[in-house]
């Protein structure tokens, strides 16, 4: 690419940055705080309920996850979860409910393309990377842990 073209593009991108309206970061942060806080509090209520029902800590946490995932997927099917995210932004993306939304959404959307190549493949379009890199990073962490154990 010619040098003056690079310069033109750089200037143009800087100019675009300047004229493009930005969402109010403060307002979006408040919304994210309320949404994320609410979802986590629901999680805490579930956790508390399962613990009171006599489950141990790990089982209570697992049941909490199951309930949050189920709730999120029902709201996804009813087309309510996207409305929550369009208001709450990261507030409903960051919790495990956002992960569940990312699994259910393509499953519903790609049903038209068939069981295997539609739902079966596309169910992982957004969640697949999360699973892959989660497993990979924990595997690396595990190797490092194993090495330190052998060393010590």
């Amino acid at each position: 690419m010619a040098v003056d073209e690079q310069k033109r593009n750089k200037n143009y991108n800087a100019y675009v940055e300047q004229v493009t309206p930005k969402a109010s970061c403060l307002k979006n942060c408040v919304k994210a705080f309320i949404t994320g806080g609410t979802i986590c509090t629901i999680g805490q209520v579930l956790l508390w309920t399962f613990k009171n029902a006599g489950l141990n800590k790990d089982d209570a946490a697992s049941w909490t996850t199951v309930c949050l995932v189920l709730g999120s997927i029902i709201l996804t099917g009813l087309n309510i979860y996207p409305l929550i995210t369009s208001w709450g932004g990261a507030g409903s993306l960051v919790p495990i409910t956002g992960f569940a939304n990312s699994v259910a959404a393509p499953a519903i959307e790609y049903k038209a393309e068939g069981e295997v190549f539609g739902i079966g493949c596309k169910i992982f379009t957004i969640a697949g990377p999360v699973i892959l890199y989660g497993i990979f990073s924990s595997w690396i962490a595990g190797i490092l842990y194993l090495l330190t154990k052998l060393w010590m």
Binding site: P21, A23, P82, T85
Partner: peptide
């Protein structure tokens, strides 16, 4: 997919 939530920038 349409059911996936996201925030649309201005």
């Amino acid at each position: 997919p349409l059911e996936y939530g996201n925030q649309r920038p201005p």
